[in-house]
């Protein structure tokens, strides 16, 4: 950095402080360039679900806009948790839990599938064992859009409104993400 630029930078920070950042943040809420108005073309959507995924009805009106797109619903079961239960409580307990989880997943996936198909979306549903964070990041690279509940992976609190798994996912995926 030249002497002039470092002088301007120092004086700028001394005069304006963080006032400029505040003002720019406010402007960004309503100033969009024309290219930012254009919605990205979406032909395939990935929606991971799990036992913590919240109510999806709020995101349905957004998904309705992608009529004709292919949607993959993946109910994710945490492989490590089941392995841990199997090792500590035995295979029988692990199977019991798996049964309960599968039924819960089936109900959730069926309800969402029905709503999405009603909008003219082509839906494919599946159940999968794996790591919730890494698997979603890996799968998302093959899709145009990722739609994920903010409580995917764990429950949220007032102080942490987004689960750590979702935070990790949004930091690593390159495709647009809708967190509902």
């Amino acid at each position: 950095m030249s002497i002039f630029r470092s002088l301007i930078d120092r004086k700028f920070r001394s005069i304006a402080g963080d006032r400029y950042d505040e003002i720019v943040k406010r402007y960004r809420e309503f100033l969009l360039l024309p290219e930012e108005f254009v919605l990205p073309e979406v032909e395939s959507i990935l929606i991971p679900l799990d036992r913590f995924s919240g109510d999806f009805h709020g995101v349905l009106d957004v998904l309705e806009a992608y009529r004709g797109a292919k949607v993959r619903l993946v109910y994710l079961l945490d492989a490590q948790t089941f392995r841990l239960i199997e090792e500590t409580l035995g295979e029988e307990e692990a199977q019991k839990l798996l049964q309960v989880e599968r039924e819960r997943g089936k109900r959730l996936v069926e309800a969402l599938k029905e709503s999405l198909e009603g909008f003219g979306l082509e839906v494919q549903a599946e159940e999968r064992f794996g790591d919730k964070g890494d698997d979603v990041i890996e799968m998302a690279s093959e899709y145009d859009l990722l739609v994920i509940s903010r409580s995917f992976g764990s429950e949220v609190t007032k102080t942490s409104p987004i689960s750590p798994v979702v935070l990790k996912v949004v930091q690593h995926v390159l495709v647009p993400v809708i967190v509902y």
Binding site: D9, I15, A16
Partner: peptide, 12 residues
């Protein structure tokens, strides 16, 4: 000060 602020913003 206004000069410094506008040049600083432009730089950013």
């Amino acid at each position: 000060s206004a000069n410094v602020v506008v040049i600083g913003i432009a730089d950013r």
